[in-house]
């Protein structure tokens, strides 16, 4: 999943990515399959059973694109397994979770893109950082400079930030001449 060059002893990191440009055309929910394995008897699975009785049908009606499987497993803690369109799977252990929390987890799984959650280097990403092209030393430089000799006196002339007395006088003359 991670295609970023990383050293061996760092926390894996990646850039923000969109799966197959989803949402530019139509938005496709990336969660394709949910499997809830639960025990029919044990108290540990009670909230999961409650979820099945009260919320599951509503969830499947609202999300016809997600296939929901139920797997009875004797004396095991309930587990929610989510499979995404890109083949990624995620398992959530539902031990000691209430019915409401199961709903929250399911909502989270539904909204995910199917990318593994790793540290993001930035909250934004672009493949084309600049459509004008990156800066280079020749940018906005007068091409006249390329044919000028390096020893040309005009290149080493001192450019004062202040106006000289002559310039000031000339300016005054201009003003008075104009008025």
């Amino acid at each position: 999943m991670l295609n970023v060059n990383m050293g061996s002893n760092v926390i894996p990191s990646t850039f923000l990515r969109n799966v197959m440009k989803n949402g530019i055309g139509r938005h496709v929910c990336q969660l394709q399959r949910v499997t809830l394995s639960l025990c029919k008897w044990s108290p540990g699975s009670a909230p999961a059973r409650e979820f099945v009785e009260q919320d599951m049908v509503d969830f499947t009606r609202q999300n016809p694109g997600i296939v929901f499987y139920l797997k009875p497993r004797r004396h095991r803690s309930p587990v929610l397994k989510a499979e995404y369109l890109n083949g990624y799977t995620e398992e959530i252990d539902l031990t000691k979770l209430s019915r409401e929390e199961i709903n929250h987890w399911l909502g989270l799984l539904k909204g995910r893109s199917g990318q593994q959650i790793v540290r993001l280097r930035k909250d934004f990403h672009t493949d084309t950082p600049s459509i004008q092209g990156v800066w280079n030393p020749f940018l906005f430089k007068d091409t006249e400079l390329s044919i000028k000799d390096v020893r040309d006196p005009s290149l080493s002339e001192y450019i004062s930030p202040f106006k000289s007395a002559t310039e000031k006088l000339l300016e005054l003359k201009k003003k008075s001449g104009a008025s």
Partner: peptide, 15 residues
């Protein structure tokens, strides 16, 4: 753990 009909139906609904 596989229901082919349900999967086919969901495939269409997804899009």
């Amino acid at each position: 753990c596989w229901n082919h009909d349900a999967e086919i139906y969901a495939f269409g609904q997804r899009f």
